[in-house]
Design a protein around this nucleic acid. Structure first.
Lengths: 232, 232
DNA sequence: GATCAAATTTGCGTTGACGCAAACTTTGCA
DNA sequence: TGCAAAGTTTGCGTCAACGCAAATTTGATC
């Protein structure tokens, strides 16, 4: 990828968007490129945090392993999303493992270099804080859901959140444009594969969703799903 | 409070600690002071985010109301903790309501002023990012707990987390130095007041804890509590 | 120091979701 | 083209935790 197309990608990312064009071009020049095949791991939870990444295209699943061998899915990340910065700023190991769910390309900067870029360009630091703030609010919202709502509502809210982040409007409804397994949904909502499967089966039966077996999910009646996610 | 004692307080806070003394003194001079009586609210969830706050002394409970009238406790905040910044950086309303659980003093800066301080002092911005990163990791850890562990383990982990943040070592064990109700613990762990009460009763019976009725909790056998929080 | 409101404890019946198990589909690979 | 592996569906018995209810204790207030 040449500097010009990198610059163009960064100009459209939430992280660099509308910042000083010279900063964007400099950042684009300095970035390292990295490509991942499906199932590849960008880095391992527990590794020393050395780089900041921005997703160029593709999609990753951010997994966190628990001490007793379970796994939860923190979130999915797509084009424009910022990865690794939380750990780098803390000077702590990466707290989770990003796994590519399809072929994916990223740009990266070393911790030291990004530090300089931010110190010389405060708006970039402000932008990073805004993105971290967004992550905090999302996590607080999910904590609230899982702490107070029953499973069906949580599954509905989770599907809607993913659709909001990555969904594509199609003729029939909103499509989630990557393979999202029942297991993934279970690990995002704090329930089991079985309960997710039962719930989705009922919704598909009802004509609310499409996506039996491993084809991509399509939300046929988003409004109805919102109702379920808000039902008293 | 005069500038000198403010400066001394800020010098010891995690947010300003070890930064340029001139920056600390300038920040101390410019800060507004705010005092809250027990039960007072600093601002309301949904209010426009206008200020950054640092807790000087005292303690606050950060509450988040759900759309359907329930409530969860996001965390407790004590001396040195940073409050409000997440919302200010996002340009969104405050996502939660901080309530003083005892008499509390804070210093505050307007969003615009703090923005300038950070732009002129990049290390301050880096520090803010580190603190936000810490919040993200704590939230991810709690999400993992609530998603994968049963109630008893979550209650143990929550008490240990609070003890780590605010506990005081005493002759008998580790004391949580403020009134932490059964309801508070329930709203932090995603369970009910009744289940928390039953669980703590059993632990008190067992000699693990002290704190029947509303006296402060004292952890008599921290190691045993860690075991419970880690039990397979 | 009497009264009242709030917090806590405890009992008991109910149930949402889990856990195990087995069958079935689809995909990928040989 | 057929086979193995992975993902999904569904049935069924069980139980951890909830929800309701009532008693008890404590702290606050005047």
């Amino acid at each position: 990828m040449d500097t010009q197309s990198r610059t163009s990608v960064l100009s459209r990312s939430p992280f660099f968007r509308e910042l000083d064009p010279r900063l964007i071009e400099l950042s684009a020049q300095e970035a390292q490129e990295r490509k991942l095949a499906k199932q590849d791991v960008l880095f391992q939870q527990g590794d020393e945090a050395t780089h900041h990444y921005v997703v160029v295209w593709g999609r990753l699943r951010l997994d966190q392993a628990t001490p007793d061998g379970k796994n939860i899915v923190l979130r999915f990340m797509g084009p424009g999303d910022l990865l690794g910065s939380v750990a780098v700023f803390r000077g702590m190991p990466y707290p989770a493992t990003p796994v590519a769910v399809e072929e994916t390309a990223l740009l990266s900067w070393s911790a030291a270099r990004m530090m300089v870029l931010m110190q010389e360009n405060p708006p970039l630091a402000m932008r990073a804080m805004g993105m971290m703030g967004g992550r905090i609010e999302e996590l607080q919202a999910r904590l609230q859901e899982i702490a107070t709502q029953q499973v069906e509502r949580r599954i509905a809210a989770t599907i809607l959140r993913i659709a909001g982040q990555s969904g594509r409007r199609t003729a029939e409804g909103v499509e989630i444009p990557f393979a999202l397994s029942r297991q993934d949904l279970a690990e995002m909502t704090g329930t089991t594969l079985h309960t997710v499967s039962r719930t989705l089966s009922a919704w598909i039966e009802e004509g609310l969703l499409e996506g039996r077996r491993s084809s991509h999910l399509v939300i046929l009646r988003p409004h109805r799903l919102v109702e379920i996610s808000e039902q008293a």
